[in-house]
Amino acid sequence: MPVVSISMPADLIERLDALTAEHDYTGRSEVVREGVRTLLEEFENDRLEGRELAGIVSVLYDFGTQSVERRLTQLRHDHEEHVASTLHGHVDDYCLELFVLEADLETISQFVGRVRSTEDVQTVDYSLLALDSVGQLRDVTSSS
């Protein structure tokens, strides 16, 4: 099996090692391989291909990290035709940026990937909703 070398902050390595021990993985490589598989599957979701989606992307980073603020502003401008709304707030010592996007899976995946690759971002989470299923969801919930 080929070897891939990666670098990461010490605190992330500590969390990786704790997860490895807590869940009885054989080592860091096994955890990283599982994480990569999960990430690849996340972006290869066939049931959402070709559908118009609403996506909510949340980004958490340390308060006052201007490089992240500049990068997120640039991403918002780069994707302005797909960003329906943004919200910036403060939680504890962090900034929380929420993006609401209306786009296809590929566009939202690219956006999320670019946010995740931004240095000093602590966490990135997102959820997707196929817009053509909204009426169906309403029908199901109203008949319950």
Rank of each mutant, 00 (worst) to 15 (best):
G135T: 11
F111N: 00
L48V: 11
G27Q: 05
V36Q: 09
R70H: 15
R33S: 03
R116T: 01
L128P: 08
V3C: 06
V140R: 15
L48K: 02
Q136L: 13
E42K: 10
E42Y: 07
S117A: 14
F99M: 03
F99D: 01
V100H: 03
D24C: 08
V140T: 15
T73M: 02
H77A: 04
G27N: 12
L16P: 00
R71V: 00
S133Q: 15
V124W: 02
L19M: 05
L128E: 08
T107R: 11
T65H: 07
P9Q: 13
L75Q: 00
T123R: 10
M1Q: 09
D24W: 03
E44W: 03
T123G: 03
H23S: 12
C95N: 07
D92Y: 10
G64R: 05
H88E: 05
L131M: 15
Q136T: 14
R114C: 01
F99W: 04
S144W: 08
A18E: 15
R116N: 02
E42A: 10
Y126D: 05
L12S: 12
G113W: 01
R33C: 04
E49F: 15
S5C: 11
V59W: 03
L72V: 01
Y126R: 04
C95S: 11
N45T: 06
H82K: 02
V4K: 10
S144M: 11
V140L: 14
T86D: 05
A10G: 06
T26V: 15
D139P: 00
A130L: 05
L128I: 02
Y25R: 07
T38I: 07
G89S: 14
E22R: 15
D125Y: 08
V59L: 04
L96W: 05
Q122F: 08
T118K: 02
V3T: 14
T118P: 04
V68T: 03
F63T: 10
V36C: 04
E30D: 09
T26E: 13
S117K: 11
D24I: 00
F111Q: 01
R70C: 02
E80F: 06
E97D: 08
E49K: 13
E97T: 09
N45D: 15
D46W: 09
V59G: 00
D46V: 15
F99K: 00
Y94M: 07
D125W: 05
I6F: 12
A18D: 14
E52A: 12
R15C: 07
M8A: 13
E22K: 15
V4E: 12
I56F: 06
L129R: 07
E30K: 09
E102Q: 13
L129I: 14
Y25E: 05
R114F: 02
V112G: 00
L48M: 11
H77E: 07
G113A: 03
V32T: 07
